[in-house]
Design a protein around this nucleic acid. Sequence first.
DNA 1: GTCAAGATTTAGAACAATTCTAAATTACAA
DNA 2: TTGTAATTTAGAATTGTTCTAAATCTTGAC
Lengths: 142, 142
Amino acid sequence: MKARSHQQDEQHLTEQLGATGLRLTPQRQQVYDVLLHKRDHPTAEEVFIRAKKTMPEISHATVYNCLDALVKSGLARQVTLDRGATRFCPNMHEHGHFHCDTCGTVFDVDLPAQTMPLPKGFQAEHFDIAIHGTCPDCASRK
Amino acid sequence: MKARSHQQDEQHLTEQLGATGLRLTPQRQQVYDVLLHKRDHPTAEEVFIRAKKTMPEISHATVYNCLDALVKSGLARQVTLDRGATRFCPNMHEHGHFHCDTCGTVFDVDLPAQTMPLPKGFQAEHFDIAIHGTCPDCASRK
DNA sequence: GTCAAGATTTAGAACAATTCTAAATTACAA
DNA sequence: TTGTAATTTAGAATTGTTCTAAATCTTGAC
């Protein structure tokens, strides 16, 4: 995976947001930076806390707004596991999520290239795969 | 899919709950009946409303308790899509969920028989596949 | 059968996650 | 500029879920 420069990130952001009719604002930039900086699938609340460190005036509602904007523009994905808060992930490559039921960590996992056969007439937009189990660390610790 | 008789359902319930150290109670039976009766992936709230029709004294907390008991005993699955309420599904065959982004309906879809290859050390318990898109009805209506 | 121990249910409060509201600010385009 | 629309903000409101303590029900030991 090639790392993008900060400037490239910004251009990418502007383009992707623009294509969805949205503007690049300092808040959206900041929220996206937070996602890129630590890719541990944070919840909206966690993004809020991290974003506040460098932008103390940012509000809760804005974080939700920004996250929605990023998702709509194809810059981030929502990850919903169980009944808890939704998590966010800036990795847009096709991948699934492995959730360790012991320690709670969420891992990105590559998926076998394949198409999902659907009954006639169904048009798939995208799909999410969530795998529950035990991660290597927790498995060996048992 | 073979339909089970009511009596068989009850026996199945007792066995599965018992194996998890749980009792079969009228409430759990009722909640399970609700799930079996209309397999449209209702939320806990919807299950609550439906269960009340024949058991008016049932409480909110009990519905959550019963649904958890059913999930723990392998009699139902939780379905989490997006940020909304969790849905419940009594279909325990391996299948995925297709969510129509237009009308909101959730469909069970069969999956190709296959194993999910995981990096070394990861132990999968089970996995959930959620597909987003447009259902045949909504697609033709466009 | 009777009783104690533990499981379950209940109403309602509490909590957590998300959305809404209305006012203030900002950006863009004419 | 100047008007229009988008965005942000604080805080209230809403929604979904969990917790609590008391009441009720089951079950197994006697």
